[in-house]
């Protein structure tokens, strides 16, 4: 499922990111590697979401959030 389907307060495991190499690499550098735990901190009605990965808060636009695939824990 996509990260966009995850609600505030839920935790999931990252499976894959469906985007170009450069951006994927950037997200990996920021800690978004396959298998990592992602906590959805804030998911407003519209606009970007806030997730927590490896102790860091990342703001992610909905476009990329919908291309991040995750598994429920």
């Amino acid at each position: 499922m996509s990260l966009l389907a995850v609600n505030s307060g839920q935790s999931v495991i990252l499976k894959d990111i469906d985007w170009g190499k450069k951006l994927k690499k950037k997200l990996q550098d920021m800690g978004m590697t396959p298998g990592v735990r992602i906590n959805m901190i804030q998911k407003p009605a519209f606009g970007p979401c806030v997730v927590e990965v490896r102790g860091t808060r990342l703001a992610l636009g909905r476009g990329i959030v919908s291309k991040i695939f995750v598994d429920l824990i």
Binding site: L23, A59, G61
Partner: peptide, 10 residues
């Protein structure tokens, strides 16, 4: 446009 990705520092 590039997707929005940004660290939110404490």
């Amino acid at each position: 446009q590039d997707p929005f990705i940004m660290e939110l520092p404490a």
